[in-house]
Amino acid sequence: DWLCNKCGVQNFKRREKCFKCGVPKS
Rank of each mutant, 00 (worst) to 15 (best):
F19L: 06
C4R: 03
N11Q: 04
S26V: 11
L3H: 15
E16V: 07
W2M: 12
K17N: 04
K6F: 06
C18D: 04
N5F: 07
C21W: 00
F19R: 07
V9W: 07
C4V: 03
C18F: 07
E16G: 02
K25H: 11
F12V: 04
F12N: 09
C18N: 09
C21R: 00
C4A: 02
K17M: 12
F19S: 07
L3P: 09
R14L: 14
Q10L: 12
C21E: 03
G8R: 12
K17F: 14
R15E: 15
V9D: 02
C18G: 01
K6H: 10
F19K: 02
K13V: 07
P24L: 05
N11A: 01
Q10E: 12
N5W: 06
V9Q: 07
P24E: 11
S26I: 10
K25I: 08
G22Y: 03
L3E: 13
G8K: 12
W2F: 08
N5Y: 15
K25L: 07
R14V: 10
P24N: 15
S26R: 10
D1C: 02
R14W: 12
K6E: 08
K17E: 14
F12Y: 06
E16M: 12
L3F: 14
K6M: 15
N5C: 06
S26N: 11
V23S: 11
G8S: 13
G8D: 10
V9S: 08
R15M: 15
D1H: 06
P24Y: 04
V9I: 15
K6L: 10
L3A: 11
F12R: 13
F19P: 01
C7F: 00
W2P: 09
R14N: 09
G22I: 01
K17Q: 13
G22F: 01
F19C: 05
S26Y: 09
C7Y: 03
F19Y: 14
K20H: 03
K17V: 07
K17T: 09
N5I: 06
K6I: 06
N11M: 00
C18V: 00
K13C: 08
K20T: 03
F12T: 12
K25W: 07
R14D: 12
R14Y: 10
K25R: 10
E16H: 09
C4N: 04
S26P: 13
K17A: 13
G8M: 15
V9K: 14
L3R: 14
R15V: 13
V23G: 09
W2G: 03
C21T: 01
Q10H: 11
V9A: 09
G22R: 05
G22C: 05
K17I: 09
F19W: 04
G8Y: 14
W2I: 15
G8V: 10
L3I: 15
K20P: 01
R15Y: 14
R15L: 13
K25V: 08
K25C: 02
G22H: 13
E16D: 08
V9P: 01
K20D: 09
N11R: 03
C18M: 07
K25P: 04
R14C: 07
F19Q: 03
G22L: 05
N11C: 00
S26G: 11
N11P: 13
K25D: 04
K20C: 04
K13D: 12
F12I: 07
N5V: 03
E16W: 02
V9H: 07
C18P: 01
C18L: 01
K13W: 10
E16A: 06
W2Q: 11
D1F: 13
R15W: 04
C18Q: 09
C4D: 04
K13T: 10
K25M: 10
C4Y: 02
F19N: 01
K17Y: 06
E16R: 03
F19T: 04
C7P: 12
R15C: 05
L3W: 05
K25E: 08
Q10A: 06
P24M: 06
G8A: 13
K13E: 14
V23E: 08
R15Q: 10
N11D: 04
K6C: 08
V23Y: 08
C18A: 01
V9N: 11
G22N: 08
C21I: 01
L3Y: 15
P24V: 03
D1A: 01
L3C: 08
R14T: 15
K13R: 07
R14H: 15
E16C: 05
K13Q: 11
C7V: 02
V23F: 10
K20Q: 06
F12P: 12
N11H: 05
P24S: 06
N5T: 11
N11L: 00
V23H: 10
P24C: 09
K6T: 09
F12M: 13
C21Y: 00
D1S: 00
F12K: 09
K13M: 05
K25G: 07
K20A: 03
F19E: 04
K13L: 10
N5D: 02
K25S: 06
P24F: 10
N11V: 02
P24K: 02
K6D: 07
K20M: 05
K20W: 00
C18W: 00
K17H: 08
C4Q: 01
Q10W: 09
P24D: 11
P24Q: 12
K25T: 02
K20V: 04
R14I: 14
E16T: 06
C4W: 03
C4I: 07
W2E: 02
G8N: 14
K13Y: 11
N5S: 11
V23P: 03
K17D: 07
Q10D: 05
C4K: 05
D1V: 03
F12D: 15
L3N: 15
C21N: 00
K6G: 07
K25A: 09
G22A: 09
D1T: 04
V9Y: 13
R14P: 14
P24T: 08
G22P: 05
F12E: 13
Q10C: 10
F19I: 03
G22K: 08
F12W: 06
S26C: 13
Q10N: 15
W2H: 03
N11G: 01
N11T: 01
C4L: 02
C4E: 04
F12Q: 14
C21D: 04
D1P: 00
S26K: 09
G8E: 04
S26W: 04
K13P: 07
R15H: 15
P24H: 05
D1G: 04
C7E: 12
K13A: 05
V9E: 14
C7Q: 09
S26L: 12
W2Y: 13
W2C: 07
S26Q: 12
F19G: 06
K13I: 10
V23L: 10
C7W: 01
C4T: 00
L3D: 15
C4F: 07
C7D: 10
K6V: 06
C18E: 00
F12L: 09
C7S: 02
P24W: 08
Q10G: 06
L3V: 15
R15T: 15
K25F: 12
C21M: 02
C21F: 00
G22Q: 05
K6Y: 05
C18I: 05
D1K: 09
K20L: 01
K13F: 06
S26A: 06
C7A: 07
Q10Y: 10
N11F: 01
L3M: 12
F12C: 14
R15F: 15
L3Q: 14
C7G: 02
V23W: 12
C21G: 00
W2V: 03
N5K: 06
C4S: 01
D1Q: 01
G8W: 08
R15G: 09
P24G: 09
V23N: 01
E16K: 08
V23R: 06
K17C: 15
F19V: 07
K6W: 02
R15S: 10
V9M: 04
S26T: 13
D1M: 12
K13H: 02
N5R: 08
K20I: 04
F19M: 12
D1W: 14
C7M: 08
V23I: 08
N5G: 10
K25N: 07
S26H: 11
C18K: 05
V9G: 03
K6A: 14
P24I: 06
C21S: 02
R15D: 13
P24R: 09
N5H: 10
K25Y: 13
C21P: 00
L3G: 11
K20Y: 03
R14A: 13
K6Q: 09
R14Q: 14
Q10S: 11
C21K: 00
F19H: 06
K20S: 01
N5L: 13
G8H: 15
Q10V: 12
C4H: 14
R15A: 14
Q10K: 10
V9L: 08
G22S: 05
N11W: 00
V23Q: 01
K6P: 14
C7L: 12
V23T: 11
E16P: 15
R15I: 15
V23K: 11
R15N: 15
K17W: 01
N5E: 12
R15K: 11
N11I: 00
G8P: 05
D1R: 02
K20E: 02
K20G: 03
C21V: 01
N11K: 00
R14K: 14
C21Q: 00
W2S: 06
V23M: 11
K6N: 03
C7T: 05
D1Y: 03
K20R: 09
R14F: 13
C18R: 00
N5M: 06
P24A: 09
C7N: 00
L3K: 14
C18Y: 06
W2N: 05
E16N: 06
K25Q: 05
G8T: 14
G22W: 00
K20F: 03
C21H: 04
D1N: 04
E16Q: 08
G22T: 04
D1I: 03
N5Q: 12
F12S: 11
F12G: 13
Q10M: 15
C4P: 00
S26D: 13
C7I: 00
F19D: 02
W2R: 01
L3S: 14
K17G: 03
N5P: 13
N5A: 11
W2D: 02
D1E: 06
C21A: 02
F19A: 07
R14G: 10
R14M: 14
G8I: 09
W2K: 05
K17L: 11
C7K: 02
N11E: 05
S26F: 10
G8Q: 15
V23D: 08
K6S: 11
V9R: 05
C4G: 02
F12A: 14
Q10P: 04
R14S: 14
Q10R: 07
E16S: 08
K13N: 11
E16L: 11
Q10I: 12
C18T: 00
C18S: 00
G22D: 04
G22E: 12
V9C: 02
K13G: 11
G8F: 10
V23A: 07
S26M: 11
G8L: 11
R15P: 13
K6R: 12
C18H: 01
V23C: 14
E16Y: 04
K20N: 00
L3T: 13
S26E: 10
W2L: 07
C21L: 03
C7H: 05
W2A: 08
E16I: 05
R14E: 15
G22M: 02
G22V: 02
K17R: 12
K13S: 12
Q10F: 08
G8C: 13
K17S: 10
E16F: 03
N11S: 01
C4M: 04
Q10T: 13
D1L: 08
F12H: 15
K17P: 08
W2T: 08
C7R: 02
V9T: 15
